[in-house]
């Protein structure tokens, strides 16, 4: 989880907690994460019972579900879409591609994931308030739900970041 905000997120979260509108932003992914997103929204996992609902415009969105490695062609449109979202901008980055570009992290036509996109967003003056990364190739629907709860501050993060220094020899 990454906090980079000057906006009062706690206050905003209290307001949206039980009615979270999500917008699905595909930046060139293979569809697998995307159909798992739909899986999470449909009756078996049924996140609509928690008030999570897919909307058709980033202007209505509380959270963006971000998939894909950010292809060169989609980049300007992705920036524009994220810019159109109101503050606080909460982003749930789904899948290996979204996180680090996945298997095509260094090819000529991809940017290599959300970290690289963040730099470009910053250059264009688009601030992002909170980001949660959900790994998986593709992500499991259960993981998407957990990631969402983490983003909304409803659960504590179970794993911790640990810096490890490789010993010599």
């Amino acid at each position: 989880m990454l906090e980079v905000s000057s906006v009062n997120i706690a206050k905003a979260l209290r307001a949206i907690k039980k009615s979270v509108w999500v917008y699905h932003l595909n930046s060139g992914s293979c569809n697998a994460c995307d159909i798992e997103v739909l899986d999470a929204l449909t009756p078996y996992f049924d996140v609509e019972r928690f008030g999570i609902k897919l909307v058709g415009s980033p202007r209505h969105a509380d959270v963006i579900l971000f998939t894909g490695p950010v292809t060169r062609e989609s980049l300007p449109k992705v920036v524009k879409t994220i810019k159109a979202m109101p503050r606080p901008r909460l982003i749930l980055v789904l899948g290996s591609c979204g996180i680090g570009g996945g298997i095509w992290w260094d090819t000529y036509s991809t940017l290599g994931g959300f970290k690289k996109l963040e730099e470009i967003l910053r250059e264009n003056g688009v601030e992002v308030d909170r980001v949660v990364y959900v790994p998986g190739c593709p992500v499991r629907p259960e993981a998407i739900i957990y990631g969402m709860l983490l983003l909304l501050g409803l659960v504590e993060q179970k794993s911790k970041r640990v810096e490890v220094v490789a010993s010599e020899g």
Binding site: T71, E73, G102, W104, T107
Partner: peptide, 29 residues
């Protein structure tokens, strides 16, 4: 919009015959 350069990638040093199925599977989810 989803051009990821897969065909080029499969010819590159990063991949061998045995690894390409992993890549091919990710053409489409």
């Amino acid at each position: 919009h989803v051009h990821r350069g897969i065909e080029k990638l499969a010819e590159s040093q990063r991949f061998t015959y045995k690894q390409v199925p992993f890549l091919a599977e990710r053409i489409c989810g």
